[in-house]
Nucleic acid binder design. Structure first.
Lengths: 192, 192
DNA sequence: TTAGTTTTGAAACAATCGCTCCAAAATGGA
DNA sequence: TCCATTTTGGAGCGATTGTTTCAAAACTAA
């Protein structure tokens, strides 16, 4: 019934995601979002409610499409230890355009420190999702004899995620890529 | 000659620093800065030029007063290995108020990714300063027989700084402190 | 075709942004 | 004491912020 939407939601969320991801929440204006999503303010507010609510939708979109896909592809693969390394490699090896944008979750954790509780909670939940996935992969690697039985999956997963965050900070501010291989060696040295 | 300034520069820079540090650059308005520094816009613009230039002064202030002091106190101490650990501990153990603000350099690297080149350059320089200080401390620890001769100071300093960045991301978004000791153990396990 | 419903695009809203302007205030030198 | 010079506080600048409003457009059901 009635007039249908003229856009596909995922396309709009994807465009909005790139905006927020690259520029940050505060630096992204509704005019920017209009231009990038090719929607008018009317449509955006009619469909998403507010800038803040749109961002929340974008966060969910990012978690499922970017993070979720990466977890599924690498941390749930047949070779868990190699999968963890590929997980880190994939976080660094994206095309230059989006590589230098780092990670939306890390950027959000930094920028939106005193923003609405909803955003903070979503962010913590997502970070937890990554940590849990790392934990499971480590456990499977231990079971498969790829890592020592003495290794504590909970502890190591926490440390790995900290390294990952640090990596994603550096990748956003340092355009040089010569340190990437060394970083992979470092991660590999932790998987014992 | 003529009317003197009514404020002490360091006091103003310190107040402005806390503003930018806690809220970020974009989220800090000139009205916020007026309130916190107890100066009027006239005085701020007369003495500092613009919001952007004030922020550059704040970055310098942060590097010398916060980072420089921490480097001098811990990374140039008599016991280099212990000093590195204390350096990390000090980054985590500040009073709750400023602990949850993380690190102005990391926050800036994330938020001001596509800001003026001056800010980016200052930031990279500061990060480099930390890395170099870590490097020297590691070298001294090796010379003192506290760490293996096989350890590469350049490589390890780079890895440690990445861990530090990750730590400072987590510390800004996660108010829980129970993971702090484990993190120190992790750092200690890298100093071999 | 027509009536009913929703989306769209553009104009404009009040609020706030960084910043400028300038008279009044505060000093040292003559 | 009065002049020259600089700082101060506050009013207000144009531009931009997120958001609202609403007529025109686009569809379905009858």
């Amino acid at each position: 019934m009635v007039r249908p939407l003229e856009f596909e939601e995922d396309t709009v969320l994807s465009s909005a995601m790139l905006c927020f991801w690259k520029q940050g929440y505060a630096a992204t204006s509704m005019r920017d979002l209009e231009r990038e999503t090719k929607l008018s303010t009317g449509s955006i507010y009619n469909s998403f409610g507010s800038k803040d609510q749109l961002f929340e939708r974008v966060l969910d979109f990012y978690v499922t499409k970017v993070i979720g896909r990466r977890i599924g592809k690498f941390l749930e693969s047949d070779n868990p230890r190699e999968g963890i390394l590929e997980f880190f490699a994939d976080s660094m090896n994206s095309s230059a355009d989006i590589r230098e944008m780092g990670c939306l979750l890390v950027n959000t954790a930094i920028e939106m420190n005193n923003h609405t509780p909803v955003v903070l909670e979503k962010n913590l939940l997502a970070q937890n999702k990554v940590e849990k996935a790392l934990q499971k992969a480590i456990s499977r690697a231990i079971e498969a004899g790829q890592m020592s039985q003495k290794t504590d999956p909970v502890n190591l997963a926490q440390n790995l995620q900290m390294v990952l965050s640090g990596l994603l900070v550096k990748i956003r501010s340092d355009k040089d890529t010569s340190w990437h291989p060394q970083t992979l060696n470092f991660v590999s040295s932790l998987l014992v």
